[in-house]
């Protein structure tokens, strides 16, 4: 079972695109709003050393931005 977490902000179109892509491939994710969840923001920034969204955590692997190739590899999506 894949564990997927999406870190986003409320009006980030890139985050929405990534969410839709995951849903279309059968992965339902509830975005974590890092603007209101300080703990999640801290974790995201510490793990990625980045202050930008969207960020995905897939089974402990952190992906910054919509890196299609990497996300497909980590989730075994045939593209």
């Amino acid at each position: 079972m894949n564990k997927v977490r999406l870190f986003s902000t409320p009006i980030c179109p890139y985050c929405m695109t990534l969410k839709r892509f995951l849903e279309e491939n059968g992965f339902e994710v509830e975005p974590i709003d890092v603007s209101s969840n300080e703990e999640a923001q801290k974790e995201m920034v510490e793990k990625t050393q980045q202050t930008t969204v969207p960020v995905l955590e897939i089974n402990g692997n952190w992906v910054v931005g919509f890196d299609r190739k990497k996300i497909c590899e980590l989730l075994n999506i045939s593209d």
Binding site: T9, P10, I11, C12, P13, Y14, C15, V34, S35, E38, Q41, V45, Q49, Q50, T51, T52, V53, V64
Partner: peptide, 18 residues
Amino acid sequence: YVGRGVSYCTTCDGPLFN
């Protein structure tokens, strides 16, 4: 410093600068 403080998308990254 792109993504580490430098941003071109205020609406995306602005909320991270609380």
